[in-house]
Amino acid sequence: MTLQQKSSQSKVAKRQIRICIASNAGGSGKTTAAVHLAYAIAHKGFKVTIIELDISSSLSTFTGLSMNPEPQDSIAAVFEPDFAGNYPLKPVWVEKTDKITAIQGGEAIERVIREIPLNPRGHYLLKDRLEDYPLAADVILFDTPATLEPMGVVALAASTHVLSPIKPENKDAEGFAGFIRWYFRQLSELRLRPKPEILGFVPNRVDWAETAMHRNFLGLNKQGKLRTDIDLSDTLPVLIEEMGIHCFPAIRQSNYYLNASLERLPLQLYRPGCDAIKDFDPITAKIVELLTEA
């Protein structure tokens, strides 16, 4: 892995992919997934924009962008009636890449959240904006809050795909069933066409070595391999695959993510060659396939 990504070749995408990264549980690693996928996709030569729709401003933790920007410098500006395409894009990790930008959320979006129900296009506003003023990015990643209403709905309406990270624990797993119900209800109620597809579900922050509940929910052994000695039919991946929804391999819990965030860097830059980051490879490969397939 080279640190000098600036020199890496640009690729031409056949279409723009907009991914709603969402789950209805806190701490499932949505922001972590967003920043690391952003870097991995950019590393393959594509332009990526992360759009933060969360009040918590957690994106700044990984990027070093200042917390809680003024409304005009945040995604709130895009919801203004007089918005004319001047997205408040901020380049991130500029010394290492010129392919990643972000639009921050933070406290500035509180007003947006209050006003969405009053707007006639309400949940379709962001979708409208991205259609009227296309962003020059091959991939847009929406980082959403754990409460799906209203920003999760806004992101879903604007997305082509959905990716749901989830911690394999009982509260979160029940929550995921709720998330799927939410997704199908939105499809019906918002009549989204074309439908945003579920790219897949990602077991995230998985500690198969130390946490029995993680192993049980995923049917894994202490080495992180699929168990063969038990019936797997009631494990999370099987239940999800039964619904025709793809289940990506698990992404392990690693303190390196935390350490990297203290340096305001993605793990790829903080600790090049670190094994843990390879867990994202299957998702990255899937997104690149979507970008380039005819």
Binding site: E174, A177, I180, R181, F184, F217, D234, T235, L236, M243
Partner: peptide, 15 residues
């Protein structure tokens, strides 16, 4: 995990 299958039954109906 038995309860989990029940939770997913509801999700399946929505699907």
């Amino acid at each position: 995990l038995g309860g989990l299958r029940d939770s997913f039954q509801g999700a399946r109906e929505y699907q």
